[in-house]
């Protein structure tokens, strides 16, 4: 029974991934697209974990962990790049480079 539940969850996540891609394609401005990509990354983390359990190979969780790390850094980096057109700029008086 629980295997069916994993399949249902995987299908739901894939469906929402399609919605997210749609939003990333039509998003009126850049920030909609970044937000959509961020959500897509979170969904990918969940999907990798669920697929690992579905296939009986929980080693997939290491991939999910790395994906979560890259997703966070990527979102911050892209937001900063779009905002300043530069990755190495500093904004504050005391500590440079915060967004």
């Amino acid at each position: 029974m629980i295997t069916y539940m994993f399949s249902i969850a995987a299908v739901a996540i894939l469906l929402v991934m399609a919605m997210t891609l749609f939003r990333a394609a039509i998003g009126p401005n850049t920030y909609d697209r970044i937000l959509a990509v961020n959500v897509f990354g979170t969904l990918a983390v969940i999907l990798i974990a669920v697929l690992g359990f579905l296939k009986g190979r929980p080693e997939f969780l290491d991939l999910a962990l790395v994906y979560a790390l890259i997703n966070f850094i990527g979102t911050i980096a892209v937001a900063k790049y779009i905002r300043f057109n530069d990755m190495g700029i500093g904004t504050g008086r005391d500590e440079g480079g915060d967004i």
Binding site: N29, Y31, I34, L35, N38, T42, V45, A49, P58, L61, D62, A64, L65, A68, L69, F72, T75, I76, A79, K80, I82, R83, I99
Partner: peptide, 29 residues
Amino acid sequence: KLAIILGFVLVTSPTATHALAQAALHSGV
């Protein structure tokens, strides 16, 4: 491992959201 990923996402996702909101606000959205 699941608990580590869960805790990590719960810490980082508001940070990313806040950075995105700041960037959007300051560029005039």
